[in-house]
């Protein structure tokens, strides 16, 4: 069965059409993992590419993610017991004192769309909460977001706290946000810097030693 229609509906943010396409595919005995890997993830990766090159904007990304989410809801119960494993687990959050959520959310959408499992802690997250989430989830990468210069000290403090905590298996920290630069990221000891949501996916892959999908 041609799965390109499902991919196209994800890209168009057509949640109902995506769900209908998945049911049709399942009825045609297409394995759930194939639907995920050959339609949904490539669809969201294409959304990310279009966002990165300025053809898609926040609304297109959000409605595509909504379509993806409704699709995953259908597939999730069917995937247990399959060979499916996420590309990696990443804890995401906006640093303490910062209530800007949407930039971080876009990064989380892009990561999930690329096959990562994201533990989204929301906004105004304390260093202790990040450490706790890493220890509970076993994530190897943490993504920190900040909107204003005023919250950059909190970002620095969080990076320091995460590295000092030395959770089992180690953790690497990537940072991003409007006032964040590569130079700032290096100065505060972050392991990676993503200039935008698409770049964050590449940084996460690099930190986890994962090759980009062909």
């Amino acid at each position: 069965m041609d799965l390109s229609l499902i991919k196209q509906r994800v890209m168009e943010g057509d949640a109902k059409g995506t769900a209908a396409g998945i049911r049709d595919a399942l009825d045609a005995s297409v394995p759930p993992l194939a639907i995920l890997e050959q339609a949904l993830i490539p669809g969201m990766e294409e959304v990310g590419r279009l966002f990165a090159c300025g053809e898609y904007f926040v609304p297109e990304l959000l409605i595509a993610a909504r379509a993806m989410s409704s699709a995953v809801e259908i597939l999730q119960p069917l995937l247990s017991g399959s060979d499916y494993a996420p590309a990696g687990k990443i804890v995401m959050g906006t640093v303490q004192g910062d209530l800007h959520d949407i930039g971080k959310k876009l990064v989380a959408i892009m990561l999930e769309g690329s096959g990562f499992e994201v533990v989204d802690l929301g906004a105004d997250v304390s260093p202790a909460r990040f450490i706790e989430a890493v220890e509970q989830s076993g994530a190897k990468v943490v993504g920190l977001s900040s909107l204003l210069s005023t919250t950059l000290p909190a970002m620095e403090e969080t990076v320091r706290a995460l590295h000092a905590a030395r959770p089992a298996g180690g953790v690497r920290v990537m940072v991003g946000g409007a006032p964040v630069t590569d130079e700032f990221a290096r100065r505060i000891g972050a392991d990676g810097y993503g200039a935008d949501a698409s770049a964050a996916v590449a940084v996460a892959r690099q930190l986890l030693g994962i090759s980009a999908r062909a």
């Binding site: 990165a52 300025g54 904007f57 926040v58 609304p59 297109e60 930039g103 409007a178 200039a195 935008d196």
Partner: peptide, 12 residues
């Protein structure tokens, strides 16, 4: 706008 473009499309 934000870092890499407008929040919603220029057409909107």
């Amino acid at each position: 706008g934000f870092f890499s473009g407008t929040l919603v499309s220029p057409a909107v």
